[in-house]
Amino acid sequence: MEENYQTLHDFVLDPSFCDWVLGRDGDAAAYWQTYLKANPDKSKLIEQAKTLVFAMGQNTSSDWAASEKAEVWTQIQSRITGQPESSHDNTEGTVHCLRPAAWRVASRVAASLTALVVLSIALYYLMQRGQGETIRYATQYGEVKSVLLPDGSEVTLNANSSLSFKKPWDAEFTREVTLKGEAFFKVTHQQNDQKFKVKLADTVSIEVLGTQFTATKRPHDTKVVLNEGKVKFSVAKKGLLGFFQETVAQETLSPGEAVALAAHKTGEGMLVKSTVQHPEIYNAFQYNKLMFADAPLTDVARVLEDVYGLKVTFSNRELMSRRYTGSVPLDKVEVLFVALEKLFHLKISQQGNQLDFS
């Protein structure tokens, strides 16, 4: 029994592994359970191999020579890629053959893999069918823009943000937009309960039917705050060459709740759910306002960077923990500067897009 299992076909073409998967050998089961515990890094590869063995549905317990294993895998690869099966010198009248059992196994495995590839490609083109040009709306620093989507949904883009989607929208498919930055959504409910999805990243999305919420995708902040209705916030990881995704974290929100994506030490995302006392603060930009409620000045500094492109430094670091509550016109940020200077007895110096709080 081999110990150095590195690739998918090392497992699929191992008779002991197949016996374990198909429940035909108790000794094999004991060995592979021990192997799996000792090699947790191989768990995903093993799950893929188990799927293929089940798909074969064929007697795979025969002892194969190494050359036969290599030949079977060559047959599988050639079925998928359409390339010549082997570099063997097949002169006229001479045919290199596998024994029937090996041929049947190769054929079934190849058919399974080919079906997966064909299905993935078909789904991709099916999703792309009817999709035309990409429509994109964007705002500059300090600018807010209202957008009316093809289904009648309304989106208010905050400053330094963009929204894109493909048209025309088909009633048979999910309505989907991609957001970078921040926006407030008023999503219309369709008679056929057509879903609406906001993509914040390739693997982060918000799914709704009809509701009102604020979505944020900034370098330091990814979250959704719900005003009305119900939304589902999901984080996924890619699989099968990026064609399919597996959900790794998901939260359903009710009005007055928020969920944020926080970095996790494993590299995957985790969701932090909370109750929001004043959700209107997060969508105040649609009314041309900046609103803060007991916000540390570090949060104020981040808003100044996100909305106006201003870089804030604190010469007096004690100011970083001071907290501010108030509202100012979004298009008159100098009013905020005056309020902060008077309230905290500080001085704000500006040179270009650089601000210093001292």
Rank of each mutant, 00 (worst) to 15 (best):
N4G: 07
Y5W: 04
H9R: 07
D10Q: 07
F11K: 01
V12A: 04
D14Y: 00
D19H: 09
L22P: 06
D27E: 10
A28M: 09
T34D: 14
A38H: 05
K44G: 01
A49Y: 03
L52Q: 04
G57Y: 03
G57H: 05
Q58I: 04
S61L: 10
S61C: 06
S62R: 13
K69P: 03
A70K: 15
T81P: 06
G82P: 12
Q83W: 12
E92A: 15
G93H: 09
G93Q: 05
A101S: 05
W103S: 03
V105Y: 05
R108M: 00
S112R: 05
A115Y: 13
V118H: 08
V118M: 09
Y125Q: 13
Q128W: 02
R129D: 06
Q131P: 07
T134K: 15
Y141D: 09
V147D: 01
V147L: 06
E154D: 11
T156R: 04
N158C: 12
N160K: 09
S161L: 01
L163P: 10
F165G: 04
K167E: 14
E172G: 10
T174H: 04
F184E: 08
V187R: 00
H189C: 00
Q191M: 13
N192P: 07
N192K: 07
F196W: 03
F196C: 04
A201E: 07
S205W: 02
T216Q: 08
R218S: 06
K223F: 02
V225W: 03
E228Q: 14
E228A: 11
V231F: 03
K232M: 08
F233G: 01
L240D: 13
G242L: 07
F244T: 13
Q245R: 13
Q245C: 06
Q245D: 12
E246Q: 12
T247G: 04
T252V: 14
P255I: 07
A262D: 09
T266M: 02
T266S: 15
G267L: 05
G269P: 12
G269S: 09
S274A: 14
V276H: 12
I281P: 10
I281W: 09
N283R: 06
A284H: 09
F285R: 03
Q286R: 12
K289R: 15
L290I: 10
L290V: 05
M291L: 11
A293L: 14
P296E: 04
P296C: 02
P296W: 01
T298D: 05
D299P: 05
D299C: 12
R302N: 14
L310I: 11
V312R: 00
N316W: 00
M320W: 09
M320T: 11
Y324N: 10
P329I: 04
P329V: 05
L330I: 05
V335R: 04
F337K: 01
L343P: 03
L343V: 11
L346I: 14
Q350E: 11
G352C: 09
N353G: 00
Q354C: 07
D356N: 11
